[in-house]
Design a protein around this nucleic acid. Sequence first.
DNA 1: GCAGTTAATGAATCGCATG
DNA 2: CCATGCGATTCATTAACTG
Lengths: 342, 342
Amino acid sequence: MRLKIMARLDLDNSDLPASDIDPGPLKLEVVQGGDMAHRLICGDNLLGLRALAKSEVRAHLAYLDPPFFTQRLHQRVERNRNRKTGRIERTETPAFDDRWPSLDHYLLTLAERIRATRDLLTNDGSMIIHVDPATSHYVKVLCDEIFGPEAFANEIIWRYRRWPAKTPNFQKMHDVLLRYRRDPKVKPRFVQLYEPLAASTRATWGDRKQVADIDEQGHRRRSLKTAEPSPGAPLGDVWELSVIAPVAKERTGYPTQKPEKLLRRLIESCSYEGDLILDPFAGSGTTMAVAAKLGRRSIGIDASDEAIDVASARLRAANVELRCERVVSSSAKNDAHSRRSS
Amino acid sequence: MRLKIMARLDLDNSDLPASDIDPGPLKLEVVQGGDMAHRLICGDNLLGLRALAKSEVRAHLAYLDPPFFTQRLHQRVERNRNRKTGRIERTETPAFDDRWPSLDHYLLTLAERIRATRDLLTNDGSMIIHVDPATSHYVKVLCDEIFGPEAFANEIIWRYRRWPAKTPNFQKMHDVLLRYRRDPKVKPRFVQLYEPLAASTRATWGDRKQVADIDEQGHRRRSLKTAEPSPGAPLGDVWELSVIAPVAKERTGYPTQKPEKLLRRLIESCSYEGDLILDPFAGSGTTMAVAAKLGRRSIGIDASDEAIDVASARLRAANVELRCERVVSSSAKNDAHSRRSS
DNA sequence: GCAGTTAATGAATCGCATG
DNA sequence: CCATGCGATTCATTAACTG
């Protein structure tokens, strides 16, 4: 018996939307703004990524937050106080559709976008893809195929707390973020962050660095306390960060919005000031907002009008100078604009 | 372009050790002990599992802690004080070999053992396999194939703290445990455990239970405090437990030994008193030792003499009555005993 | 008895030396 | 030049000891 686990990629166009196969020549049409540090592109992200690939633009970090294969239509929730009754009323509008004919369709769509993202990275850049524990395994096999297994850098666990579900099972309380380097042979962009020392370490060693001590015979003795203060322990790959509270200021109403703290940590450790951050699933614009706060440049892409509205409002409220663009393909049938207004 | 991620299982015996293909009739030969609650079997675990399958024995929980594909030979470390010098001296002996021709060989070996383990589970039983984040994804694809994706219950993250490695990367600080149910249609064995409430919850709600409150119009109002003390939050799937300290009493010197706290949590929540716990990669016998403490029965299998020695000494020291057995196959070439004494 | 201090050391990763 | 291997690094943990 032989076994092989792999992502099999065969040529067969029949399952793909026409726009994925040959959208004709692509162009980015400026809707508003000049040569800004932050660009928000409206359109299918595969087309957007391919249009960007033709320019000189290369990103140092890409963050992908695709749909999680929930098989649900996700709604945006707006909250407004009714003038007459004084009660808060909720309005729901469709934000994005996460329903798929099959897992294979989902993975294939993702694979195309991961590959297109990889082509836009600098050699010392990396990609982080945010997924669910139920699909992360398939996505990792996919990424191993696209980047090569040596390029795998981390499985980051984002652990959060939420209202418990009543189930005879351990409560699902984490997301998975996979990080891949574009070229594992190149010295990576990385800024060492620290987390607080463990309580047991502080009790024994205080907040000073330890150093190993080896005697003349080469035997190891007890480590020594130094006078040098410790910056903490180098940051690990399990992060405990709270989800956005239902009443937090940060909350835009856009579904599946990720907390700014999470993006801050990713961007601070995997990019330098002035670097370009790419987010092909821009959603409510969290990545771009955090990139702006941290002095990075950014490009966000999203096909949903809801997303573009929420993100541009959010960024403008934060005084981020924004250039808005639209993906235009020469073939009228696949024109992002015509689909938008349909 | 089409894509399919799957575990492909083709018939081709050439890569397998002869004993995996047809070991001939299998028998468990009693080396020592009578009809005890705890059985330690020496021999290849695939043969051991197949021999068990012929008996009526079925396990309620199986814990698998296979090698992690480290491509290293792992050593057992014994420590003894030298009478003359008074210094502690270390003796290293090979414990198990985790070197493989390829990832596929590793996965195939694992697949056979997972399948054999599944065949030994009760319908309401489950299997937990302990793996590394670098291979967990492939193992999950494998298990989805063997158990079916609906049988997937949890990805448990064991987060620990250790000394930092010097690397421009997030420190690897977690293991992955995958849990599958034998039959997802059957009510599972599960005991709800709790963890302490989050600090923010205690600050707002104290240590009493909250209840949702909905008014006559169906609008949700602020939740209410109750008088009933909260048992804590239902246990999640990210567990922070320390690794065995270098000087802990628990430490046997056997490599990759897992902490008793981890096994205690798994056994307490996924089995009942009197249940049978199966560990085909018994190693230093942690699973069996914890099972005994928790009033469960156990069967452990290991091919390594080092493991059998360490585990039986450990269990006897804990006053666990033990029956020792040996897998015997009729084909002399594959006889576990002849290999042991070679 | 209890608290505080001292002791011992695992093993991931990089970098440099050695063959 | 490439592969191999050893040394340096340093936080975390519990046991043993001390007052």
